[in-house]
Simulated scan of single mutants.
Amino acid sequence: MPDKNTAALDFLASRLSQPAKMFRPPVPSHEELAAMLHLALRVPDHGKLEPWRLIVLERADFTRLADLAEARGREMGADAEKLDKGRGQFDRGHLAVAVISAPKASDKIPVEEQVLSAGALCMSLLMVATASGWGANWLSGWPAHDAEFCARAFGCKDGETVAGIIHIGTSAHEFPDRPRPDPARVVQWGLGPA
């Protein structure tokens, strides 16, 4: 029987996302964040393709991103609620890492698997930040799915998308866990009769 890592299992059983809008300073130092990124990058990278890139966003970056989101929303004819949501995460942000899915040309690794690798990197960073004692939240929002915003904000080229924006900071409150999926409802054991 394999040896269990009880501490890791306990962490996974208690991990929950905390609202990024509630984060406040302090945030990790450059050295602390660099150490977290070093660990988070230990994800499947499909033959060393590294089909992603990271952009560390600090407080000054958020003002620019908020203004870009508002301008883009106005160009799109967005209503007040959409404009507020577009600005929101950037107006309140202190530190985040934008994970850009950047698939590479490959005869062996399908684009879909490369995109999943970027998602795995988002989850890995979320776990590493939380395990390091910080509040962490994986957000996207409409700006992250708008190609024009992503090109202006993050320099995304054709085929690149924002997999997630991982906000990291000090959590102001303790939050209760939310209801979790019932495995009996979402897990199928086997394929059934042929």
Rank of each mutant, 00 (worst) to 15 (best):
V186N: 10
P28R: 01
K108T: 14
T63Y: 05
P19N: 07
E148A: 15
W189A: 11
D158A: 15
V99A: 05
E148R: 15
H94C: 04
E160S: 08
D182L: 10
R87M: 08
H38G: 01
G192H: 05
L95R: 12
P19H: 05
A194G: 14
V97N: 00
D61E: 12
E32P: 01
P19M: 05
W134G: 05
P28Y: 04
R42H: 14
E174N: 14
A71T: 14
I109Q: 08
D79F: 10
S124P: 09
S101H: 12
G164D: 08
G155T: 08
G135M: 03
G164R: 10
S171A: 15
L33S: 06
H30E: 15
R180H: 09
Q114S: 07
A102W: 06
A131M: 11
G164C: 11
G47V: 03
I166H: 02
V99E: 05
G159Y: 10
D146K: 08
A69H: 09
P143W: 00
D182H: 11
L12F: 14
L125T: 11
C150D: 01
I100Y: 02
E174V: 13
S117A: 15
P110W: 08
F11G: 05
E70C: 13
L95W: 10
A105E: 15
L121K: 08
G135Q: 04
A102D: 11
A7P: 00
S124Q: 04
A131R: 06
A120D: 03
G93A: 07
